[in-house]
C-alpha cells in the first residue's frame, strides 16, 4: 500500500463526514419545510372565513380535504419550475445536492484508493448504497415533487452513513478471492439500486398510512365539526391512493432489480461455491425479501388488501432489506462473510 493511496482514503473519509454534516443541514431545512407547510395550508384558506377557526384549530372539513388533495395530487407531477415555492424545501434540496456531491466524491476517491469498485465491504456497501438512495431520490425529484420525503431520505443518510463510518470503517485491503469477479460489480450494484427504490417506496408507504389515517378521521367526522388529524403537513400532500400508486411504481422497479440481483447472485454462487442455490443465510434473506415484495404486488391486486394492508407489506419488505444489510451481515453465520469486520 503506497502512501498516496492512504492519503486518498483519508480525504475520502473527510468528504464522507462533510457529506454527513451537509445532509444533517438538509434534514433540518426539510424539517422546517414540513413544519411550515401546515402554516401554508392555513394561509391558503384565509379567504374562506367561515372555516378559518376550524382550520386554525387544526381541523378541516371533508370538502376541504378533497379539494386540497386534488391540488396536491396535480402538483406532485408538476415540472420542477412550476412547483409551489417552498423556500425551505428548496434549501433542503440544494443542500442535499451539495451533500450528494461530497458523498459522490468520497465514494469515487475510495474506489480509486482501493483500485476497485467501492462496494466490497460493509463500510463501502453503506457508502455506495446510500449514495444510490440519494441519487434515486434526486432523480425522482425531476419527475415528481417528493420533497416531503426529504427528511426521511436525508435522515436515513445521516444515521446510516454516520453509523457505518463510525462502526464499519475498515482500511483499504485487497479483495478476498471470492470477490474477484465481475459479478461483484453487477450483483452488488444492482442490489443497492433495488434497495434505493425500495427505500423511496417505503417512505411513500409510510406517508400513505399517515394520510389514510387522516382521511379516515376526516371522513368519520361530521361536516363542520372540529377534528384533529395529525401532522399538519399531510394536508399539503396528495391522497393516500395517489401516494400508494406512486409507492407501487417505485416498488415494482425495485422488484425487477431485486429479481435480477437474485439471478445474478445465483450465477455467481454457481461459479464461486459450485451450486447456484444453497439456502445460505444471505440467500435465504434475499429470497424472503423477494417473496415479501411479490406478496406486496399481489396484495395490490387482491380485494381487501389494497391500500393500508399492502402498504404494511411494503414497509415490512424494506425493514427486511435493512435487517438483511445490517443484522444478517454482522451476526449471522454464512458463506457471505464479506463485511470486512471481525
Amino acid at each position: 500500500m503506497s502512501d498516496t493511496a492512504l492519503t486518498l482514503d483519508d480525504v475520502s473519509v473527510l468528504l464522507v463526514w462533510t457529506a454527513i454534516a451537509v445532509y444533517a443541514l438538509a434534514f433540518i431545512a426539510y424539517a422546517i419545510d414540513l413544519a411550515s407547510r401546515s402554516a401554508l395550508a392555513v394561509e391558503a384558506k384565509d379567504a374562506r372565513a367561515r372555516e378559518r377557526e376550524l382550520v386554525a384549530a387544526g381541523g378541516e372539513s371533508l370538502a376541504d380535504v378533497r379539494a386540497r388533495e386534488e391540488r396536491a395530487g396535480a402538483e406532485i407531477g408538476m415540472a420542477p419550475g412550476k412547483r409551489p415555492r417552498l423556500v425551505w424545501a428548496r434549501i433542503g434540496t440544494s443542500l442535499t445536492v451539495l451533500a450528494f456531491l461530497f458523498h459522490l466524491g468520497a465514494t469515487v476517491l475510495r474506489g480509486i484508493a482501493a483500485e476497485r469498485v467501492p462496494w466490497s465491504n460493509m463500510y463501502e456497501f453503506a457508502m455506495t448504497g446510500l449514495l444510490l438512495v440519494v441519487a434515486v431520490y434526486l432523480a425522482a425529484l425531476v419527475k415528481y415533487d417528493l420533497r416531503f420525503l426529504g427528511t426521511f431520505i436525508t435522515g436515513l443518510a445521516v444515521v446510516l452513513l454516520g453509523g457505518a463510518t463510525l462502526s464499519f470503517y475498515v482500511e483499504v485491503v485487497p479483495l478476498m478471492d471470492p470477490l474477484k469477479s465481475v459479478w461483484l460489480v453487477i450483483h452488488v450494484f444492482v442490489a443497492s439500486l433495488a434497495t434505493a427504490l425500495f427505500a423511496l417506496a417505503f417512505g411513500l408507504s409510510i406517508v400513505q398510512l399517515l394520510q389514510a389515517r387522516r382521511e379516515r378521521k376526516v371522513a368519520e367526522a361530521q361536516e363542520g365539526q372540529l377534528v384533529k388529524t395529525g401532522p399538519g403537513f399531510l394536508r399539503t400532500l396528495p391522497s393516500a391512493e395517489a401516494l400508494e400508486s406512486l409507492a407501487y411504481r417505485f416498488a415494482i422497479i425495485g422488484f425487477i432489480f431485486w429479481t435480477f440481483t437474485l439471478i445474478a447472485g445465483a450465477i455467481w454462487a454457481n461459479d464461486a461455491w459450485g451450486r447456484y442455490w444453497g439456502f445460505d443465510t444471505k440467500e435465504v434473506w434475499t429470497f424472503v425479501i423477494w417473496v415479501l415484495y411479490a406478496g406486496y404486488i399481489h396484495a395490490r391486486a387482491t380485494r381487501g388488501w389494497r391500500g393500508t394492508r399492502s402498504a404494511w407489506l411494503s414497509i415490512i419488505g424494506f425493514v427486511a432489506v435493512l435487517f438483511n444489510f445490517t443484522i444478517v451481515n454482522m451476526f449471522f453465520q454464512g458463506l457471505h462473510a464479506y463485511s470486512g469486520l471481525s
Binding site: 435465504v284 429470497f287 424472503v288 399481489h298 388488501w305 449471522f332
Partner: peptide, 15 residues
C-alpha cells in the same frame, strides 16, 4: 397472498 407470506416466514428459521 397468504401462502406467499407464509413462505417468506417459513424460510426465516433456516437462517
Amino acid at each position: 397472498l397468504v401462502l406467499l407470506l407464509l413462505l417468506a416466514i417459513a424460510a426465516v428459521p433456516g437462517s
